[in-house]
Design a protein around this nucleic acid. Sequence first.
DNA 1: AGTTTAATTGAAATTTAATCTCAATTTCAA
DNA 2: TTGAAATTGAGATTAAATTTCAATTAAACT
Lengths: 142, 142
Amino acid sequence: MEIEIFRKFLSGRGLKLTNQRVAVFNEIFAFHGHFEPERLYLKIKDSGTRASRASVYRTLNLLVESGLVEKITRTEKGNVYEHTYGHRHHDHMVCEVCDEIIEFYSEKIENLQDEICRKNNFRGVSHTLEIRGYCGKCGRQR
Amino acid sequence: MEIEIFRKFLSGRGLKLTNQRVAVFNEIFAFHGHFEPERLYLKIKDSGTRASRASVYRTLNLLVESGLVEKITRTEKGNVYEHTYGHRHHDHMVCEVCDEIIEFYSEKIENLQDEICRKNNFRGVSHTLEIRGYCGKCGRQR
DNA sequence: AGTTTAATTGAAATTTAATCTCAATTTCAA
DNA sequence: TTGAAATTGAGATTAAATTTCAATTAAACT
Ligand SMILES: [Mn+2]
Ligand SMILES: [Mn+2]
Ligand SMILES: [Zn+2]
Ligand SMILES: [Zn+2]
């Protein structure tokens, strides 16, 4: 279970798996998709558990450090995250009109990136490839 | 000249090429590289011209809309821009230690992206590919 | 040249995501 | 049970970016 990974990550740092942290964790892993911290905070609030904004943000950062969650992009109105554990790495297309996010993965692009890193004597650790434009629905309307 | 393009862009909108706008433009096109709005503002201040922060930000947005300048990434401490007119599109590798930015371009990756867009019925307009990791210098030290 | 009109400017206020502060509370191992 | 250490949350703070709005400037039109 993913929660065990989180627990181990925490105890490795002398930190505790508190109710608030569990609440944040559960809300994030309850669905697959992208989310913003503020909406996450509100969802937790709705679910009945009490966890302050400060705790939500703090836990989110811990989850990112643990590798279970990734910050996938920074929009004008803040960061966007997704839980990545158990999901294959992928990149995103974002519709500029309706904000729809389409996920994609290209082995070829991944390999080309590795090649470019080697050529430049650069040790790549992570990357973000975001294509912005118009989704099928919104593209048609112009 | 690039300034003519800007002038035309402005007049097409009924806007004027003022001293402040010229100052922002000149400072940006005086060198090739990446910059943050605040540093740009300070450089203009140093150069003697008077232009408020508000004007710098406003002009920067106009330059982006005109296509002469691009917002290339959003860091924790704000946006990073570069003037792109006359420069071929390229992507970036960013060293997590020293913040060095290495530019690269891959025709193959560009083509693969176009292909993926077609497949997903997505009209790609722009993209950002940022590889994070360790540059040669900083990678050696670990 | 003088008048009208619209755009522009800048100082300060505002917005907003995210972080920080710190006193009170909780946790847990000894 | 006790004490050290971690955690929490309400509110303060930070900082990038935008907005406000009265004063100024530039152009367009008699
Ligand atoms: Mn995704
Ligand atoms: Mn560049
Ligand atoms: Zn759309
Ligand atoms: Zn480096």
